[in-house]
Amino acid sequence: MAEGDPQLQRMIAIETQKQEFQQRIHDLTEKCWDTCMLGVPGQRLDRKTETCIGQCVQRFIDASNFVVNRLEKEGQANLRQAQDETGGFKWQ
């Protein structure tokens, strides 16, 4: 139904993006809660826990970026090696 309606398509793309953002926050909250919230929850988040949560988010993003970058580099190196060895393209 949306195919012929670019305006509707755009609106749905925006909503999808919003939803993906929300889902990422849900996932990160769970990870960082499990990592940082030690013991029984108190009257407020203490400084240590707050710091831990902030760093948890930042390091998770760093780790994801690292994984992507490393795989990219490795993939390129493998490809080059395969090309050198066989004189042509070969995957693996």
């Binding site: 909250t29 029984v40 929850p41 949560i53 902030g54 988010v57 930042q58």
Partner: peptide, 24 residues
Amino acid sequence: KCIAMCMDRYMDTWNLVAKSYTQR
């Protein structure tokens, strides 16, 4: 009491994560 407290802290965490993620 513990559950009530835990819910509020989980919400705090959610907001903190959203803020930190948005800044990044």
